[in-house]
Design a protein around this nucleic acid. Structure first.
Lengths: 159, 159
DNA sequence: ATTACAACATATTGCGCAATATATTGTACG
DNA sequence: CGTACAATATATTGCGCAATATGTTGTAAT
């Protein structure tokens, strides 16, 4: 838990938006972890999407998962050991390609995914209600990301 | 730079909002650093507010700065060595209280702050324009933070 | 005065991620 | 063929932060 929940609203602070969105990210993760614990979900919050991608693919290499998730290959590789340790996935050599190592969900992994699925319905409702309360954070952030990708700050500042 | 700029828009992904806001935070920092370099600003993007707080206080201990910034005391302590190395601040023992160590801005620190100040005007304009383009991300995130502080996910999910 | 406690600074450790480097294996082209 | 290159996995390192633990110094209560 952060030492304070006070967030500067000062526009003069150059990095304000970065710090704001980081604060939001932290608060969400903070509040999600205990809920997961309560629901018997041991999966790291940030690896849920990895498991989802894996169950959809049936089996996949780290590189496959990275492509499916839009994450870096190294990041996937770094997440997998924890999931192996938790017994949620297994790793096998690919007989057809000695470079690849294939991941599969274990029964425990499927069980966890089922719990997550059951949970995600409810959580989706909560977020939708939150959005109605405070405005479409989701959409606004997406638009901001797209805008910054299309025209970076370096361009914007020269106009 | 992240391997991909693709962001999942899937509401079913439980941690989607956290990952979205983190992505935004990263993109902003990514794009801000080169601008700083170009403007001769060596200050770590995330320490700008620390310098600002210090110049406003004149002199301050780490605990003072933490209170002013709403950050944890330890975080301030961890940031200061880099600023000392950059020659932007100095550290002195407090003659009145042997527990405290007092930080002050150096001339180089003031110079950096002046550059940042000059920059922050322009950058404020850019952000305001961005908000008009994509909606009030700033305000939406603030509202979401406040809403989650007032009523955490754990409460919301039980309704 | 002594004792307990609060405030402060600091070190250590761990987490999640990025960046870089390296090694291995497959593929395509000369 | 063999040589260059692409793809894959992995280790190492560094950054920014949180959490925890420790030691020191001031303060207040008895």
């Amino acid at each position: 838990m952060p030492a304070s929940t006070d967030i500067s609203t000062d526009l003069d602070d150059i990095s304000f938006l970065g710090r704001l969105s980081e604060a939001l990210s932290q608060r969400i993760e903070e509040q999600t972890r205990p809920l997961f614990d309560e629901a018997g979900i041991t999966v790291p919050v940030r690896s849920c999407s990895l498991l989802t991608a894996l169950v959809e693919a049936g089996e996949a290499s780290a590189a496959d998962l990275a492509r499916a998730l839009g994450q870096s290959h190294q990041l996937v590789i770094q997440k997998c050991p924890a999931l192996l340790r938790l017994g949620l996935i297994t790793q096998h050599a690919d007989p057809a390609d000695a470079r690849r190592k294939i991941f599969r969900l274990t029964d425990a992994g499927h069980d966890q995914l089922a719990r997550i699925d059951a949970y995600s319905v409810r959580i989706g409702e909560v977020y939708r209600a939150l959005f109605e309360e405070v405005g479409d954070v989701h959409g606004a952030i997406l638009k901001a990301l797209k805008a910054l990708a299309d025209k970076p700050l370096s361009e914007r500042i020269r106009e």
